[in-house]
Amino acid sequence: MKEKIVLNMITQRAIEEGQAMEKGKTTPEYFKACSIVEMNPEDMKKLGIWRNTNVRVTSEAGSVIVKAIEPTQYVPPGLAHIRQGVWANQVVPPRTQSTGTPQYSGFPVTIEPAIDERIKTALELVQGAVGLWKEGGN
């Protein structure tokens, strides 16, 4: 068992994310669809966590707490996937290789257990980032 593990992160679409987004980004559906990281059970084992455990994902750009789940679409060991959206974009590096397009996929992240930490809501993350978040909502 290790304290942390380095994986290659991709962030892509999912139908659950698309449907929830149309319902609204402040809905519980969107929270459920996007505040997760999918990783191979082997990697979970290496990290010493069960599925559905909260983890901290950290990249060169930032860090976010999400729930680690077993892949809904098979992910090989070494790869991790957060569905596109608010949680993913806390860690997506804004570097564009001079094309305008950020590194949404293929960037290294460190994942560590964060069992006692709370997953923030979409609004808390985005408003929090720009100093507008107030406890209890706006």
């Binding site: 980004k25 750009a61 930032g62 974009n89 804004p94 950020p102 979409a122 720009v130």
Partner: peptide, 16 residues
Amino acid sequence: TDAGAHFPIEAVRHLK
């Protein structure tokens, strides 16, 4: 669109 959700958060911070 929703730049708030789909831009890397650092870019949002700058724009704000």
